Amino acid sequence: MWSPCASCNTTIPLIAQGTLVTTFKEYPYKSFEELDTLLLQAEGTVYCVDPASNGQTPPLEVEVLKDQLANRHIIEQIQHGTFESHLQPIIFLDSTETFGYEALLRSGANISPYDLFRTANRFGLHSKLDQRARAEAIKATFEAVAPHQKTFINFLPSTIYNPDYCLQHTFDIIDRYDLSPDRFIFEVVETEKVHDVDHLQHVFSTYKKRGMKVALDDVGAGFSTIDMLKRLEPDYVKIDRSYISFCDEDAEKRAFLRQVRALTHSMGITLLAEGVERMEEADVCRELGFDLAQGYFFGKPAPANQYKIEIA
């Protein structure tokens, strides 16, 4: 049975009509705009009460509540809004056939992924958003990805405190859609700086025990040494686009890519070039022996329904 941790259950209640309670007085308000105005004159710790339900927000410093209100549209989207996954093709470099897709979270309210994850991290909602992103990616796989193709799903190691519990929600959704675990490749997202390698090893181990593969993203930029590959032993490695961009014109980049190809080949790791935007870059990666590639040259992220498969 799945037992979510406290972080997964974090919620920020926002009361649109209620009473602002301060140290000395209570102020009724009928909208967030009125509440904003009241907060301009308030000091210290405050909270809001919903007279209809008697529910209330946690006591907060005025500036913290003002900050929440200023970001309320994004907070509400993370907690209750709709999401979908857009899929970006990943191709075999030798044949240009589709290997699979990377699932990328998109908001139904057209809020940028950057703003979503920045706000989630700022207000302690990153575990909830990361969990929702995984759920949407699994749903998109069921609806739009052929059984012989793979789906790369991003995850934030910092949101997974106890892998045996925090990831059970993800495993339950895979079971609910009756999908084979080996259709999924879970990758550390490029913006996440990994400081606790032992913890990441535990996360990787938990995924692998369930029959899934794991990928290390951002190699060459976010991860400082190639030695990290030997320690984490990922199934896939994605090379940061900064090393792919115009690699045909940069001998140092090609030397680095050649070094990574030699190491990953010796370890049996599948190598993927990301951010390929030009034919010349694809040609270099193919010549160096890269297995897979993704980028605008091969296809931009698109709604999953554009790839929808027919279910027999």
Rank of each mutant, 00 (worst) to 15 (best):
P163T: 13
G211V: 08
T206H: 04
F171V: 06
E192C: 01
Y177V: 03
F155S: 01
I226E: 05
D178T: 11
T141H: 13
L156Q: 14
L216R: 08
A144Y: 07
F171W: 09
V194K: 11
D218M: 05
F223H: 12
D227Q: 15
D178G: 02
P163R: 13
G220L: 08
S180F: 11
F184P: 00
S180E: 15
F184V: 00
L200S: 08
D218L: 07
G220K: 14
C166E: 10
T170W: 10
D217G: 08
V197N: 07
V219Q: 01
F152R: 11
V189P: 00
F155W: 03
F155M: 09
D175E: 12
A146C: 05
T170L: 01
H202D: 09
N162E: 12
T206E: 14
S205I: 07
E190P: 13
E143A: 13
D164T: 11
D164C: 12
V145M: 05
T206N: 10
E190V: 08
D164I: 12
Q201D: 09
H195M: 08
H199N: 03
R176W: 08
L167R: 09
K208V: 04
V145I: 15
T170P: 00
Y161M: 07
G220R: 03
P157N: 15
G211M: 02
H199Y: 07
K208I: 08
L179H: 09
L167M: 08
F186T: 00
I185Q: 03
R210S: 09
E190M: 03
E192H: 11
Y207R: 07
D172C: 05
L216P: 00
V189L: 13
L179I: 06
Y177D: 03
Y165T: 12
L179S: 04
V203G: 02
R210W: 05
H199F: 09
A144G: 12
M212T: 07
L156K: 07
S205C: 10
A140N: 02
S224R: 12
E192T: 10
V214P: 01
N154M: 11
T141P: 01
T191P: 00
L179Q: 12
V219R: 04
C166I: 02
R210C: 06
A146H: 14
I160F: 09
T206P: 00
D182P: 05
M212N: 06
D218W: 04
F152P: 05
H195I: 04
Y165D: 15
V214N: 07
D196G: 01
P181D: 02
Y207S: 07
D196W: 05
F204E: 10
A140C: 02
E143S: 06
V188T: 15
G222C: 00
K139Y: 14
Q149I: 03
V214D: 02
L216H: 06
A215N: 09
I174F: 10
L179A: 04
D198A: 13
I153K: 10
C166F: 14
D227I: 02
T151A: 13
K150E: 00
N154S: 03
K213L: 11
H169K: 11
R176I: 04
F223N: 10
F186Y: 08
T141R: 13
D178S: 08
S205T: 14
T191M: 11
D178F: 06
A221S: 15
I174Y: 04
I226Y: 06
E143N: 11
A221I: 14
V194R: 09
V197H: 01
G220F: 05
H202T: 15
H148L: 06
T159I: 06
E192A: 15
G222W: 10
I153N: 12
